[in-house]
Computed example of a mutant assay.
Amino acid sequence: MFPKNAWYVACTPDEVDEKPLGRTICNEKIVFYRGDTGKVAALEDFCPHRGAQLSLGAVCEGKLVCGYHGLVMGCDGKTVSMPGQRVQGFPKIRAYPAVEKYGFVWVWPGDAALADEAKIHHLEWAESPDWAYGGGMYHIACDYRLMVDNLMDLTHETYVHTTSIGQKEIDETPVATKTEGEHVITSRFMNNVMPPPFWKANLRGNHLPDDQPVDRWQVCHFHPPSHILIEVGVALEGKGGYHADAKDKVYSIVVDFLTPETETSMWYFWGMARNFNVRDKALTAQIREGQARVFAEDMAVLEAQQRNLLRYPERKLLMLNIDAGGVQSRRIIDRLVAQEQPQPQPQKLAA
């Protein structure tokens, strides 16, 4: 249900500053830590001696030390030493490709021979001083594909986020869906509407009036395995909408990295990048707090949805026009998963 030959966000760099971090990703129990060069390493969270969790140990001079009997592990999965023991014959444990890039630690839980850092799609906002970013992480008890559905169809905002980003015009404006290779795009453009509370605050944050009609947009981009970047914003009405000059709008990218933990749980790395008033740290904190509340509302809905689906596994779900983005994204996920399955071997005919 999740492709493994792909890069997933595993954690943020600060989570592996001093201590090892244990995290399950795609049903793989992995320990992350920094080796002697400061580079992040990712190993199977399993001590070859007695099967203890290496993540419960410590990092000493760039080596991972098991907290049970002091076995010392190298970044390549080979045992370096152990008190009173010869370790040359110890079995090697699995090492996973890991990369620190764009402000996140990424891991490849599949075939290490296929891992290519270039497959991490470029994130311009993470490298440019013209952008500010603030975000966080939630652990959510649901199938990560439910979150894909949620983010590729923002119709729910009218009902789930009534006090922040929801408004009736979302329901009233049709959504367009298209697929370009493995990239799914859904878009909705709402003209001459009043900004909801979240966007009023952002307009004020860019020194724009918050009591005038605006043109609002939502453009959702799905990239496999489960990364969704959403272009959002509002411009003063009649100034060009999505294409308006920067002085007349507030434009942001909602960042959603969905990392499966198990079949019914996930790690959700969320945030917002913006290209206006980027040096205002108070504004960054304010937006982050607002987003945290919005995504907490999503979490409550999705966890309840997951419990209901497990309670009624035989029930068929409806597929409507508004579901097209999620449906197309799931088809890509299903295709990638199918490609990783062992292919049946042709049977030899008896002589």
Rank of each mutant, 00 (worst) to 15 (best):
C60E: 14
C60R: 10
C60V: 13
E61T: 03
E61N: 14
G62D: 03
G62I: 07
G62T: 05
K63P: 00
K63C: 08
K63S: 01
L64D: 02
L64E: 09
L64C: 07
V65K: 13
G67H: 07
Y68R: 01
Y68H: 08
H69A: 05
H69Y: 14
G70L: 05
L71A: 13
V72L: 06
M73S: 03
M73F: 06
M73E: 06
C75A: 13
D76N: 15
D76K: 08
D76V: 05
G77F: 04
G77E: 05
S81E: 14
S81M: 05
M82S: 13
M82G: 09
M82E: 15
M82L: 12
M82F: 07
P83K: 05
P83F: 07
G84M: 14
Q85H: 11
Q85W: 15
R86C: 07
R86S: 11
V87D: 09
V87C: 13
Q88E: 12
Q88H: 12
G89T: 15
F90C: 15
F90D: 11
F90P: 04
P91D: 02
K92G: 04
K92C: 12
I93L: 04
I93A: 01
I93V: 12
I93G: 07
A95K: 08
Y96P: 00
V99H: 08
E100V: 02
E100K: 04
E100N: 02
E100C: 08
E100G: 02
E100Y: 00
Y102A: 14
Y102E: 05
Y102N: 12
Y102P: 05
Y102C: 04
G103W: 11
F104S: 12
F104N: 11
V105W: 09
V107T: 05
V107A: 05
W108A: 02
G110M: 00
A112V: 11
A112P: 07
A113S: 14
A115I: 02
E117P: 08
E117M: 02
A118N: 10
A118G: 09
I120S: 12
L123I: 06
E124D: 14
A126W: 07
E127R: 01
E127W: 02
E127M: 09
S128T: 09
S128L: 03
S128K: 11
S128I: 00
D130K: 06
D130G: 10
D130Q: 09
W131R: 06
W131K: 01
A132I: 10
Y133V: 08
Y133I: 01
Y133C: 05
Y133G: 02
G135V: 05
G136P: 11
G136T: 10
G136D: 03
G136K: 10
M137C: 13
M137E: 11
Y138M: 15
Y138E: 12
Y138S: 07
H139I: 03
H139L: 12
I140L: 14
C142E: 05
C142W: 04
C142S: 15
D143S: 02
D143F: 08
Y144C: 05
Y144G: 01
Y144E: 00
R145M: 13
L146I: 09
L146M: 11
M147W: 06
M147E: 00
M147C: 06
